[in-house]
Structures are given as structure tokens and as C-alpha cells.
């Protein structure tokens, strides 16, 4: 029985790993092709099956006048917007989540759970229709086509995620921790910052990871709310979709755009593995 389980476990994990990797391998191979290698049928191994070329990659770094998109500026814009918006969302979200987890709110029929749901429900609305009101809103503030405007919008997108994850997290942090601190003479803020917060780093990391991911992969708002001065990475990459879909440069772009997040994934995994989470919750 355990042996069978072990076998099935490895079988399934390896199978899933192959499924996860397959499109990336295909993208790596495709990124070195050109029009003729793509239209000639599926091939996989460079030199053996097709003549590799770096055209797909060089497009990412050339200016538009040479048929490229030059992603370097947008790359840093994306990093800046994502990190700033995530940070603000985490701070605000953690505070709100702590309140929702530890205190009781009641206003008519509205209770804690309803407020939590209100936060999450902000993500239900399909972005398409929000585009016009957001456009007018930012236009009134004079923040169209600016990093600040995008950060503002992303806070709305990201804070619900932070609230939701942190409420769940705080619910599992024993109340005794805060109570001990309060008995020791801290006021609620000191208790939160000195005792609860240090124990919440793992939860905030997971929430942060989600915020970064959802910020990083957003295309729609970045597309509608910017014109020329500010461009984010996904918008820039999508500008490769001309009459011909360039399989090669889009493959290269997909790989380049996922790269920084893999580093984030390593950091989060490290924290999870160290068992900090379970340590905090003892």
C-alpha cells in the first residue's frame, strides 16, 4: 500500500511536471525559429530540425524603427508599478484584515464577513466596463498615462487579494499572542507591530506573491489607461501581434516576462520550506 502510493505519487508529480514544462519547452524552441521554420510544420530541435536564429530575441531589444519593441523601459515600469502597488496593497490590506479578524464590526445587517466579502467582491466586475469610468476618473485627476495613475488602479485590484489572504491568515494566528502582549502593557498598535506583525511575515509573503503576480500579468488596465509616456511590459509585448502573429518573438517575450517572477517563486518557496509558517502558528 505505501509502495503503491509512493509510485503513484511520483508518477503523478512527474506527469504534472511534464505538463507544466511542455509549453515552456515549446516556447524555448519556437523562440529560435523564423517564419519558414514555423510554417514548415512542428519541429523541436535546433540545428537538427531547423536552422536557429536569434531574430525572435533581438526584436525585444531593437527600437521600433528597426522593427523591434525595445522592452527595457517597459520592463522597469512594470517592476516599479507592480512592486509599489503591491506594497501599498499589502500594508493597507494587512491592517484591514487584522481589524476584520480581531474586532467585531456591526452596522445594521453588515457584519465582519460582509465587509470581507465587500473587499473580495471588487474583483467580480469584468474589467471591460470599468475601463471608461476609470479613464474618466484618472482623467479628472490628471493621472492618465502616468505611473501614479496605474498604481492607484492596481491598488484597487490588489488590495482585495491581500485582505482576503490576510484575514484567513490572522484567523489562524492564535489570539493568545495579542492578548499576552496586551497584558504585558502594550497598546493595541504596539501589540500589532511588535508581536503580531513579525509573526505574520509568511502570510504577507504569500499575499505579496499573489499581489505581484496579479499586478504583473494585468494587461487590460495598463492598455486602456496609458498612451505614450508610460508603457508596461504586457502592453508592449502585445504590440508584436501584427497581421502575422510572430510565434518566435512572442515566445521569447513570454519567457522574458515570466523570468523575474521565478525568482520571487524561489524566495516564497524558501520561506515555506523553512517552516516559518508552521513556526508562527504554534
Amino acid at each position: 500500500m505505501p509502495k503503491l502510493y509512493t509510485f503513484l505519487k511520483y508518477f503523478f508529480v512527474i506527469l504534472w511536471a511534464c505538463f507544466v514544462i511542455a509549453p515552456f519547452l515549446w516556447a524555448i524552441s519556437t523562440s529560435f525559429k523564423d517564419f519558414n521554420s514555423v510554417t514548415g510544420g512542428a519541429t523541436y530541435i535546433p540545428w537538427l530540425q531547423f536552422e536557429p536564429t536569434l531574430d525572435g530575441w533581438s526584436v525585444l531589444f531593437k527600437p521600433g524603427s528597426q522593427g523591434g519593441i525595445n522592452i527595457i523601459g517597459p520592463y522597469f515600469n512594470s517592476i516599479f508599478v507592480t512592486l509599489t502597488a503591491s506594497l501599498i496593497s499589502i500594508v493597507l490590506g494587512t491592517l484591514a484584515a487584522y481589524a476584520l479578524s480581531r474586532y467585531t464590526f456591526k452596522a445594521g445587517f453588515v457584519k465582519n464577513n460582509d465587509i470581507t466579502f465587500f473587499f473580495i467582491s471588487q474583483r467580480i466586475m469584468p474589467p471591460v466596463v470599468l475601463s471608461i469610468p476609470f479613464f474618466l476618473f484618472l482623467s479628472t485627476l490628471g493621472l492618465l498615462d502616468s505611473l501614479a495613475g496605474l498604481i492607484l488602479v492596481y491598488i484597487v485590484l490588489l488590495m482585495p487579494i491581500a485582505v482576503w489572504i490576510m484575514v484567513d491568515f490572522f484567523n489562524r494566528v492564535p489570539k493568545e499572542i495579542d492578548e499576552t502582549a496586551l497584558i504585558d502593557g502594550c497598546n493595541p498598535f504596539q501589540a500589532f507591530f511588535k508581536v503580531v506583525l513579525p509573526n505574520s511575515v509568511p502570510g504577507m509573503l504569500v499575499a505579496g506573491l499573489f499581489c505581484i503576480i496579479f499586478g504583473w500579468i494585468d494587461f487590460f488596465f495598463a492598455f486602456i489607461l496609458t498612451f505614450t509616456k508610460v508603457q508596461l511590459l504586457p502592453v508592449k509585448i502585445v504590440a508584436l501581434n501584427s497581421s502575422i502573429t510572430p510565434w518566435w518573438s512572442l515566445s521569447a517575450a513570454a519567457l522574458v516576462s515570466v523570468a523575474p517572477l521565478i525568482i520571487v517563486a524561489f524566495i516564497v518557496e524558501r520561506y515555506l520550506s523553512k517552516g516559518n509558517l508552521s513556526g508562527a502558528l504554534k
Partner: peptide
């Protein structure tokens, strides 16, 4: 890793 890829790309 998969969730870190931009869907539209």
C-alpha cells in the same frame, strides 16, 4: 510558475 505567465501572452 504557470500562474506567473501573462494570460494574454
Amino acid at each position: 510558475i504557470p500562474m506567473m505567465t501573462t494570460p494574454v501572452i
